[in-house]
Every structure is written in C-alpha cells, then in structure tokens.
C-alpha cells in the first residue's frame, strides 16, 4: 500500500549549508500493518512522514501511496491519508463539530455521509458532550479525541502518525493506541513514528530504525532480534545506532 523508493530530502540552511535530512530511504508498508519509524531526535522521521504526506517535495526519489505518486499526484495522495502529528493543534475558536465538518468538506465528503460519519466517530470516541464547545475550552483528552476523529474522518486507507502521543499522559496516549489498534484491525495501512521504545514494541508489526537520515534496518521484532542478537528493542536500538549498551 505504501512504497517508498530511494526518497531523499535536502535542506539548504544558512547555518549548516546543504544537508540531507532524509537520505535515499526505501521501505514498504502493507494494508493491515503498523510500521514503526524509530529514531532519535533529528533523525529525519518528521521529514520522511512530511514527504509521504506531500507537505514537502522530495529532492529525489519518490513514494507511491495506494497507487498515487507523491511527485505527480500530490492532491490525490492527500485524499488517501489521515495525517496526525504530536505537535499539531486544533483551531482554538472553532468547535469539534465545526472542525470535523470543515475537514469533511475539504475531503469532498457528501453532506449526508459526512454527518453520519461524524456522528459515528463521536459515539465511538465519546465526543457528543463537547461537540459544540470551542476547542480552547477543552481538556487535552478531549482535544486529542477531536484530533483523532479529524484524522479518521474520511476513512482513509492510510494513516500517517508522527509521534502522535508525544507529550500526552498515559490515559490520553491510550486513546491513541487503541485507535491505532482498531484501525489496524479494519485493514488500514499505518505508518507511525516514535522515539518511545515500549510503544513501538507494543504497537508495531515491523520497525524501521532511522538515524541521520539513513534507514539502518527494517524488520519484525523477531528479525531485528536475530540480526542484532539483542532481545529488547532498547538494546536493539542502541546496537543499531552504535551506542554503548546499558550497564
């Protein structure tokens, strides 16, 4: 469902000059699979996911999402994805209902289908009580539910989640984790970035470790264990990054 082919992104920066944030990265993700992109800060996770979401244009290489190429059909790609990032916020002066209607319209959802789908998600996530309250008056948990509903609204086959639970407390992070598990069960293709090992170990079918813009390796937990001879993801991760193991 997602094929990433030798994708690269180079930034031109006055301080650092030209530097590759993502360097010839290739991997595939199937429908019904959760792929975890694991890497330290600045590794290139966000840049990779932004390339897939067509927020950035690749310097070279490409990616194909559900048959749509990011270089030649960016608007169609965006119709295939639900994109959520940990530091995204909601429109403070709008209500969850207004936000969902707006994104539904952007996704070209027919009014009837939109209303039905919004109602369905609100019931699922327990949002009815605050659907008409401006989001700047909502708790973090309520905001997070709204963000999830917005991501899932148009029932996209692909979910791109960039550290979606960063900065959230355990109960709120749980809402996201269970949303991911539900999506996986319904056959969605999910690509997910994190630097939290436990989360990756628990949620992901396959993991790719990225460092300095290069994808070091990809595989299931079992494959990674065999390749590195380490058991826990934390140990595998340190090994792949060439860092000393814990004492």
């Amino acid at each position: 469902m997602i094929q990433v082919l030798e994708i690269s992104k180079t930034f031109h920066d006055s301080k650092r000059g030209t530097h590759a944030a993502v360097d010839r990265v290739s991997f595939e993700v199937q429908a019904g699979e959760v792929f975890g992109l694991l890497g330290p800060n600045g590794a290139g996770k966000t840049t990779t996911l932004r390339l897939l979401a067509t927020l950035l244009k690749p310097t070279s290489g490409t990616a194909v999402l559900n048959g749509c190429d990011v270089n030649t059909a960016p608007a169609q790609v965006r119709g295939q994805i639900g994109f959520l990032s940990g530091d995204m916020r909601l429109y403070a002066r709008l209500t969850p209902l207004e936000i969902l209607n707006f994104f539904g319209e952007l996704n070209g959802m027919e009014p009837q289908w939109r209303a039905k789908r919004i109602n369905q998600l609100m019931t699922l996530l327990g949002m009815h009580d605050f659907a008409g309250v401006r989001t700047d008056k909502l708790s973090t948990g309520m905001k997070q539910k709204t963000a999830i509903a917005r991501t899932m609204l148009h029932d996209p086959p692909i979910l791109i989640l960039d550290e979606p639970s960063s900065g959230l407390d355990v109960p709120t992070a749980r809402t996201i984790e269970s949303a991911i598990m539900d999506a996986k069960k319904s056959g969605k293709c999910i690509i997910y970035s994190t630097h939290v090992m436990e989360e990756a170990e628990y949620l992901c079918d396959r993991i790719g470790v990225i460092d300095n813009g290069r994808l070091k390796t990809t595989g299931t937990m079992q494959q990674l264990r065999e390749a590195t001879g380490k058991h826990r993801l934390r140990e595998i991760f340190l090994d792949l990054l060439g860092l000393p193991q814990d004492k």
């Binding site: 169609q76 965006r78 994109f83 990032s85 995204m88 916020r89 994104f103 952007l106 996704n107 791109i160």
Partner: peptide, 14 residues
C-alpha cells in the same frame, strides 16, 4: 504559530 497549518496542508485541498 498555533500549529494548525500542517493538518490543513495535508488535506486534499490544493
């Protein structure tokens, strides 16, 4: 600044 632009740009709107 309020970090709402990214989700907007990731929608199918051109």
């Amino acid at each position: 600044e309020r970090k709402t632009l990214e989700a907007f740009l990731a929608s199918p709107a051109t």
